[in-house]
């Protein structure tokens, strides 16, 4: 009761909480796209996969009564969409970016169509782990109320990083992404590797979507994704195709998104639209500052540019 008034100190706390709450879908989608793009293919359709994951996760949770089955179902649906993308792109002359846009439309359309009966009912949702149990501050406790998916995502980033660098399958994915000819010469089936990488990416994007409907904000409706999936795909470029940097980028993006509401909550309302655009402006500024014409896209998988 004593410290309900944090005042301005609430802002950094809100940014921390926001980073944890908002970043998870960005994290999962960007990690998924990271795998896909490292294999030399772009899947712009992850926005559709995300929305489909949100809808189907909610639906599975509602039908089975278990939110974790919902998460799993969302992942499976996501990997099916990813596999479809991977399969079609495996055919000669098909442009992966164009197909991604079409898949985005299909995913969103299907999710909205099939999700109509899910708008009203309430499905069981995921809980949180109270990491802030040690603190007496209600604010800190709520900021540190963390969902397991976030923890999984945070653990997944370095794991993927390690996997891509140091394991056999990581090497195969990277080889396919750097030079399909070399990969073929080594006897790898380029299309199959990419298909699997796209399906894996779709799985993660579907799980990211289920976070939206099953934890935060925690219900299914059609305005749920205001382009988070598309933004997450863009963050992969920002993170220069590194899973670790995807984690940082997602946290930054989620945290910056909390600045606007946090400022208003202490009475600073002037120019709130501009504050709400902070994540985008900040990302752009960092992007410009960190790019350079000379080592342009040195980290970019070589096959990404050549694949059209």
């Amino acid at each position: 009761m004593s410290d309900t008034t944090l005042g301005l100190w609430g802002i950094p706390l809100a940014v921390l909480g926001g980073a944890i709450r908002v970043s998870t879908p960005f994290l999962f989608v960007s990690l998924g796209e990271c795998i896909t793009e490292r294999s030399g293919r772009v899947n712009l359709g992850l926005e559709g996969t995300l929305v489909m994951g949100a809808m189907s996760g909610y639906g599975f949770s509602y039908l089975t009564g278990s939110p974790w089955l919902g998460v799993l179902g969302a992942g499976v649906i996501g990997s099916l969409l990813g596999a479809l993308h991977g399969f079609i792109c495996g055919k000669p002359r098909v442009n992966d970016i164009a197909l991604g846009i079409a898949m985005m439309l299909l995913g969103v359309g299907l999710a909205f169509f099939l999700g109509k009966p899910l708008i009203q009912p309430t499905a069981p949702r995921l809980g949180a782990i109270p990491f802030g149990f040690f603190s007496s501050s209600a604010q800190l406790r709520s900021a540190l109320n963390v969902n397991v998916l976030f923890v999984i995502g945070v653990a997944l980033a370095p794991l993927l990083h390690f996997g891509l660098q140091n394991t056999r399958w990581g090497l195969v994915v990277r080889t396919v992404g750097e030079s399909s000819e070399a990969a073929r010469a080594l006897g790898y089936n380029v299309n199959r590797v990419r298909l699997l990488a796209t399906a894996a990416g779709g799985f993660l994007a579907g799980v990211g979507g289920s976070f939206l409907s099953l934890y935060y904000p925690g219900s299914w409706n059609e305005g749920l994704s205001s382009g988070q999936g598309l933004m997450a795909v863009a963050l992969v470029i920002f993170a220069r195709w590194s899973p670790k940097r995807c984690l940082y980028a997602s946290l930054l993006f989620g945290g910056a998104g909390a600045i606007g509401p946090a400022l208003q909550s202490v009475g600073i309302t002037t120019g709130y639209y501009l504050w709400n655009a902070a994540p985008y402006a900040l990302t752009l500024a960092i992007l410009i500052a960190s790019s350079s014409a000379t080592r342009a896209s040195a980290d970019m998988p070589a096959e990404l540019g050549a694949a059209r």
């Binding site: 809100a14 909480g17 709450r21 908002v22 935060y216 904000p217 925690g218 509401p261 909550s265």
Partner: peptide, 9 residues
């Protein structure tokens, strides 16, 4: 998402 964020804040 923004509404949820505002509510939490």
């Amino acid at each position: 998402v923004k509404e949820a964020e505002a509510a939490n804040t």
